[in-house]
Amino acid sequence: MSIVNVGIADLNICTGDNSLATYALGSCVGICLYDKNKKIAGLAHIMLPWSKDASKTDNMRRYADTGIWELYNLMKQCGASFPGTVAKIAGGAQMFQSNSAVFNIGERNVQAVKIVLNKLAIPIVAEDTGLNYGRTVFFDAQTGTMQVKSAMNPTKNL
């Protein structure tokens, strides 16, 4: 069994008894996609909501829309069924309290992720988003369990 690491503004998939991990999500959002029947798991770590608002397009995995779209296509290529694949999401925190719009990027990320998943008709079956703390996500391809760890709260298995 091995753990496949997914960096910031990156994505990956795995199968069998392997898992995916992404560390210390702040305002970023981790999107886990899972086909239960074929045991195919995918994970994307996005930083910003929409690619159309970007001035730099060197890495499209940075944005919710293009990142999820790429993960969706990769899952499909590997044989995942749509419909038949579900989503679990975590992250989108507001690390520093403030009234400024830039600070609320976490909430905007979560909104964008939900809109994109809805467009692709992928149901969200579990969610641990918002609030004000960082999260590490492990996603098990065998069981489809999303484990969310944080510095001061108990670990959640979703």
Binding site: I8, A24, C28, L48, F96, F103, G134
Partner: peptide
């Protein structure tokens, strides 16, 4: 503004803003 948490999560704030 104060935040005590995982450094990766804290650093995501400037990383996102100055991406």
């Amino acid at each position: 503004a104060f935040c005590a948490d995982m450094v990766g999560a804290i650093m995501s704030v400037p990383a996102v803003e100055f991406a």
